[in-house]
Amino acid sequence: MPGHGIRRTAVVATLSILTGLAVWAVASGTLVSEVQLPHPHAVWQEAVAKAESGLLWESIRISLWRVGWGWAIGVVAGIATGLLLGELRGVDAVVGPIFEFLKGVAPISLVPIMILWFGIGELPKLLIIAYITWVVVTVSTMTGVREVPKVRLRAARCLGLSQLQVFYRIILPSTASYVLLGMRNGIGFAYIALVSAEFIAVDKGIGFLIMDSRLNLQTPLMVVGIISLGLLGSGSQLLYDAITLQTPWLSRFRRQ
């Protein structure tokens, strides 16, 4: 029975995708103009052309570089901040609202001020991506430290651990699953920040490709850009899941 259910699901999902493509193909040029909705075939041709000319790969390379480094910096800073603030008992009521505020500040709104401060080089883009990752990872690390069960801390204390040992033998491993989750959520936010930065501080990258093609009414390129971005985003998360699930010493922290 379960096997049958999965096959049926696959059939329905395939049908759904095919129907979607068919509606898209028929609507383009009839219900909606080709400028607004280019034919799937045109999009495919555009993707092939830009892949051959190297523009697509170059844009992807630059965007991945930005998102990768920005995310990594944000993660390191976030774990450090989160552990520090989580350990200082009592401060969460004080810093909690600050991080709530920071989380609400959309990365795109920081782009203009970052350009004003740091020019239009790579630095402001990295900072914006790192910023939002930092906020997300800090909040979840802080939560993790705060949620370590009291009984677990007591068990460690009566087995003779010092304060410092409690920190790295109990609190760090107990917080690991929260950190891993924060890092994963951070990926999504890092991509939002990436697009934001590339939309406004224009020069290269996938976001620039999308924005530029709008100005030139090159809709097929715009669709190629959006699809690439979606693939990159989900690809990054899949890769992250694969790494964290397959690494044996990481997988034990998920058994909580």
Binding site: A155, C158, L159, I170, P173
Partner: peptide, 29 residues
């Protein structure tokens, strides 16, 4: 608290360290 008076807790869900195996839990202290 100290290892001369070890406590066995009722809350088994939290008292063991879930990221450690049985052997590692027993060795912990």
């Amino acid at each position: 608290p100290g290892p001369d008076r070890v406590v066995i807790f009722q809350d088994i869900g939290n008292a063991l360290f879930p990221w450690l195996t049985v052997q590692e839990n027993a060795e912990f202290g």
